[in-house]
Design a protein around this nucleic acid. Sequence first.
DNA 1: GCATAATTGAAAACGATTCTCAGAATCGTG
DNA 2: CACGATTCTGAGAATCGTTTTCAATTATGC
Lengths: 156, 156
Amino acid sequence: MADAKPSADERFARFKDHLRVQRLKSTAQRDTIVRAFLESQRHISVEELYNEVRRRNPRIGYATVYRTMKLLTESGVAAVRHFRDGEARYESAEKRHHDHMICESCGKIVEFEEARIEALQEEIAKRLGFQFTGHKMELYGICRDCRRTRQQHAAG
Amino acid sequence: MADAKPSADERFARFKDHLRVQRLKSTAQRDTIVRAFLESQRHISVEELYNEVRRRNPRIGYATVYRTMKLLTESGVAAVRHFRDGEARYESAEKRHHDHMICESCGKIVEFEEARIEALQEEIAKRLGFQFTGHKMELYGICRDCRRTRQQHAAG
DNA sequence: GCATAATTGAAAACGATTCTCAGAATCGTG
DNA sequence: CACGATTCTGAGAATCGTTTTCAATTATGC
């Protein structure tokens, strides 16, 4: 039986725990932002999240979204990624390690796991005399959908 | 017998060719910047390059360094990389494909080649239905020198 | 040489993110 | 519940790396 991944409520609770432990305050703004994040799609950008948050409470500022996502990352509920475009994207941190494959045409992001790459990385680090601490790996390509669309256009 | 890698003069000539073909102009500023780059260490940042350029000709502005490095990249002589800190670093493009291992403590950058990783990447892309176009991979760790230093401090 | 087109430096604009600061809200304690 | 210490908030300014703007300067083809 696979581990069920934590529900949105469980992750929300984990965030609240973090606040308590760190003696930080619970506020309506933080709740709104975290709930919006937990209900969002994967790899949401700050701007996208901000727009959703605004729909729920237009008085919440950009800075608070940034601050809250930082907190959420520290609590282990979210994780940041920086892809090619340079704006941060947040994803749920509740999953196993994985990397990303990104479509250069439509921006679609697909996750994958590959144990053999992880193993090679450790091996390379050792060979170079480094104590391995982490890595960043992204593959870029054109997804099937975009290739199909392109052909249709070409065929006219 | 290994291919000799192009000398600085050969690369400079390649840049000049690029200018000619594109009907762009040769200027003293461009020459100064490109020469400074070609004589520099690997993975130089724009700021570092700008400082060196300034020593040679204090009237050259930041924007011209940026513009020239863009040109040099288009000509295939240089290549940009964006590592964790977010500032662009330029390296010579005259080498075979390679990736980087970066020390989280001192910032040292070591290059490596690993055919097995390249092969895996293509395989993964295919599995996900992508036409592979490129990738970005960086390993992070602590280098031997920094580990040694750290121990000395601990032993103090 | 001259005209034309490209290039330059300085400063402003940029986009993503962080900081500042004064007012507002939270929370542990009486 | 009220108090007070502390934290949080929103708005806008500040920051960082980079690009753009613009008027003045320079390179190049004829």
